[in-house]
Simulated assay, not measured.
Amino acid sequence: MKIFNSHSHLGVDIERGKMGLKYIFDKSYIGWLYELPSESREDIKAYFEKVMTMKAFVQLKAALEKLYGNGLKLDLNTWDVFDERIKKAYEDPNHENHVLRDVCGYDEILLDDWIDIRSSGSNGVECSVALRCDFMFYGYSREGLESCEANNFDFFDHVPDNIYDYEIKMRDYIKESLEMGKCTALKVCMAYFRDLDFEPVDCHMAGVVYEDDESSEYIRMFQDYVMAKICEIAGEFNIPIQIHTGLGQVTDTSPINLMPLIRKYSNVRFSLLHGGFPWADDLLAVLYECPNAWLDICWMPSLSSIIARDTLINVLELIGTDRIMWGCDAATVEESYGALLAGIDILDEVNGYFINKGVFDEAFGDRLKEKILYSNAKDFFNEL
């Protein structure tokens, strides 16, 4: 079965010369919470005891065993064997693409990266690009850019000093990326930096930030206005928007905060990444009320099997089968494969639930997996 991987970070910030077992764990979602201090036996043992119940660990361990184990289980006694096999595998420059294409079966991969459209962006992994727009929210001044996590690309060699020129600059940059084939979708990840309650702001009020670029009130107005312009540009060029929802800076990052925006721009397709985890009930309301909103279950199966399974069942019961996608949301091919294994496990559980209730048979269960893992994304990204 072909798979459309709708959201990934593959190859981003990965130093292939350092690739090994510790590096893979540290670059995974487990590493966000717990970094392995060293590869001493004492540290590895304590690390395994700490993380063994985390779904992200369970799925990554399973992927490592399938890719490098040859029948071995990963534990304290086999750590060095796995480490050596991983380093040997990465001597082949085609190893990553082999895992992604031949093992995972990815027909297309959408990469989320801080990408300068004039660079290759993919770091050796064959991908399409979601053009990340977060830096645009800080383009009211050079200082604003330097204060955020966004890279300062050529787009900001010259920072306009008024909102009118800034709008033109935004549109031209997105248009140029489309013409260069560097933009399959726009990506907004502002949930890591602020809430998702984007209010309507007129052009004049948004422009006041140029008179006082240190005012949190004016910065917020500017950012609200930028979000609206991104939606307008997406509508103009018929490109979808992916929005990070749920865990991030946490406060007011539930999908429900996006309801007014999604309703207003009904001509734009919105992908709600991560399903608003853990606010899945809010997600259901948005999907029901907004036919231009889609669910991407990326990350969810890697965080909680139960929440991912129940959310998927509820969404299928509420809105049907057409507006659901999956992405790995991983930076290494090992974690990507693990995320795929976890996603397929969840889909199998969901199929079992509906088959046992007599809602559909196994043949349609296979069709449902194909829709969620491939054809729904092709439809969303206008690639049918």
Rank of each mutant, 00 (worst) to 15 (best):
K2H: 13
L10K: 06
G11F: 04
E15A: 09
E15R: 12
E15W: 05
G17S: 12
Y23G: 05
F25T: 01
G31M: 11
P37A: 05
S38E: 09
K45L: 09
Y47V: 03
F48P: 00
E49R: 05
V51P: 00
K55N: 09
K55I: 03
F57Y: 14
Q59S: 09
L60N: 01
K66P: 04
G71S: 13
K73T: 14
T78S: 11
I86S: 00
K87W: 01
E108H: 10
D113I: 12
D116A: 08
I117P: 02
S119V: 01
C127H: 02
C127Y: 00
S128N: 14
V129S: 05
L131K: 02
R132I: 03
C133L: 09
M136L: 11
F137Q: 01
Y140M: 07
R142Y: 01
L145D: 01
S147H: 15
E149N: 14
N152P: 06
N152Y: 04
D157Q: 11
P160F: 06
I163N: 02
D172F: 07
D172S: 11
Y173S: 04
I174G: 03
S177Q: 12
K182L: 04
T184E: 13
T184H: 06
Y192A: 13
R194S: 11
P200V: 08
P200I: 06
I219K: 12
F222Q: 06
E236K: 12
F237Y: 15
I241G: 08
G246K: 02
L247A: 08
R263N: 13
K264L: 12
R269Y: 04
S271E: 07
S271M: 11
H274T: 05
G276H: 00
P278W: 00
L287M: 11
E289C: 12
A293R: 03
A293Y: 07
I297M: 14
S302P: 02
L303T: 03
S305D: 11
I307H: 02
A308Q: 03
G320C: 01
T321S: 14
I324S: 08
G327S: 12
A330T: 14
A331M: 13
T332P: 07
V333H: 01
S336T: 07
A342E: 03
I346T: 10
D348L: 01
E349W: 06
V359D: 03
A363N: 15
G365H: 02
D366E: 15
R367S: 13
E370P: 12
A377W: 10
F381D: 02
N382G: 10
E383S: 13
